[in-house]
Amino acid sequence: MLNVSGLQVFYGNIHAIKDVSFYVEEGEIVTLIGANGAGKSTILNTVSGLIRPTAGTIEFLDHSILNLTPHKIVRKRLAHCPEGRRLFLQMSVEENLEMGAYARDDIDMDAEMADVFSRFPILEERRTQLAGSLSGGEQQMLAMGRAMMSKPILLMLDEPSMGLAPILVEQIFDLIVELNETGTTILLVEQNAQMALSIADRGYVLETGSIVTMGNCIDLLNDERVKKAYLGG
C-alpha cells in the first residue's frame, strides 16, 4: 500500500534521514520506533508532503505521491495525525471534527460525527467548547477523532500516547487496534516501544536517521539490542 524507498532528507546541512526504505501492506499495523530525534516524525512529515525529500521515492497505492502537496495527498485517503496533536485550539470541538472531514465531500458529516462521539462520549459533552480548553487526554481523543473523520485507508499516527496517563494510553491503543480491525491500515510512530510492538504486526527501529533493524514485532520484542535500548531491559 505504502512503499518508501531510498529516502534522504536534509534540514539545511543536517542529514536527518539517511537512505530509509520501508513498506506498509494493506491491513497491517506497522510501527516506527526509536529515540527522540531519530527521525520518526520527519519520515511521516515527508510522506504526507510537508517536507520535500532530496532523494527517494514514495508510492501510495502504486502511484508516486512525491510531488503532491499535502492537501492533495490527504485526498488520496492517507491521513496524518501529527506530533503534538496540532488541534485548532481556537476552534470548537465540533469545528475541529468538521476540519477532519474537510477533504471529503462525499460523507455524511452527522453520521461520522456520531460515530466519533460514540467512541468518545466526553467529546459530545464538550462539542461547543474550544479545543484549547480541553485536557491533554481529551485533546488526544479529539485528535484521533479528527483523523477518523476523513475515513482514511492509511492512517499515520505520530506519538498518540505522548503525555497521557497510562489508562488513557490503553484506551487510545485499543482504539487503534479497533480501527485496524475495521479496515484501516496503520503506520504508528511511538517512543513507547513496548506498547507499539505489542499491537503492531511489524516494526522498524530507527537510530539517528537510519533503520538499524526491522522485523516481526514478536522477534523485535525478543531482540537483545531492542530490549536494551528501548524496552528498559
Partner: peptide, 8 residues
C-alpha cells in the same frame, strides 16, 4: 501545516 493535513 495542520490545515494542509486536513486537505486545505
Amino acid at each position: 501545516d495542520a490545515a494542509q493535513l486536513m486537505g486545505v
